[in-house]
Design a protein around this nucleic acid. Sequence first.
DNA 1: TGTTTTATCATGCGCTTGCATCGTAACGCG
DNA 2: CGCGTTACGATGCAAGCGCATGATAAAACA
Lengths: 202, 202
Amino acid sequence: MGKDVGVPKQVDHQERRQRIADAVCRLVARQGLEAVTLRHIAAEAGVSMGQVQHYFATKDEMLLFAFHAFIERSERRLIAAVTAAGPEPSPRSLLRHLTSLDEESRAEAPLWLAFLAGAAVQPRLAALQREGGTGMIDFLAAYIRQAQAAGRAPACLDPEREAVTLLALADGLMIAQLIGHVDAATALSAMDSQLDRIFPTD
Amino acid sequence: MGKDVGVPKQVDHQERRQRIADAVCRLVARQGLEAVTLRHIAAEAGVSMGQVQHYFATKDEMLLFAFHAFIERSERRLIAAVTAAGPEPSPRSLLRHLTSLDEESRAEAPLWLAFLAGAAVQPRLAALQREGGTGMIDFLAAYIRQAQAAGRAPACLDPEREAVTLLALADGLMIAQLIGHVDAATALSAMDSQLDRIFPTD
DNA sequence: TGTTTTATCATGCGCTTGCATCGTAACGCG
DNA sequence: CGCGTTACGATGCAAGCGCATGATAAAACA
């Protein structure tokens, strides 16, 4: 019986799934969740429909996997954007990133919004979203607390509340930009105004 | 030829369309945009599928109409919420409403989000969204300007930017609540904190 | 080697979709 | 009254959907 599970027989299972998940993300970003069909995904990924079925038992499982992968990638990039800016991480880099001012995030805004809308209806998507979001809030709150300890932020602020505010504002500004209510400069100015309030010395 | 157009022959055309549009909104709020099919809508509205087809040439036209009706209703209620609170309209009532703390708005949050995601993909929906949003921004900015003139708000603030910030924050907090990142109390506290900054004397 | 497992494709099935096409009541009007 | 427009229901249809099935080739293992 001693099966050595996990040993790839011929192809890298995980890599194939990821490649298909990427195709899902691309398609959702471009045409929304409704455009996700097995046939469209197969075409977008440049593989046969049978192959998609081979790596994902159902369409739902595929969507869930793609969403999870997307969230993980976003978090990784967010943290990288903050910590890679310098030895002393800057809140500006964090929130400029969140305000979707770089092209990479901008292109993914519709994707994020589509999954958000899906989460409003499908509990399983909402659960994934919750995990990701709280992680970011904790990260931000800890960062604010640290700034307070260093005297770079007013001690009277509630770190939790400010973290929630900043992230909510980032989401809202991203939406406003996406719809066309405001341009990037206005969004950035609004976010900067908030940051000045929290980190006056930067 | 002198046709008296608009004279209802037998039924109130506009009222029928509105009744169907309401069914669309209910269904979208409950199950998302993907659940919108002619048959489901007919069932939700309690009419035959033929009737739905009679009042809307295509599914897209039906969605567009429903979305437009929804936006108009939201704006009407928003303005009513502000002006009906008293002779001197209060920013609190406005933004408590926007933060989706009343049940009515809360139930419509998924609906709003679904149309938002749709707008990210379909330009015609985005156009409708844009109209509605700028109206609210102008309304808010004018209100802030008026408060500045009355000395109830710091003159150093840029009304446009603060209006954008408040609306974006409202959207973001609504999303955070919907996903479950924060509870209503936290969201309200975050919004109040912003209002204190803009209207310190209230 | 032969056998089993894995990877892949092609095809088909049952169902739902938006929409077109009929038939037919009911009312407005000359 | 008759006639045409309007309102509405029933049905059909081609396309697309998720998914099941079976065939085939190759690799893994005995």
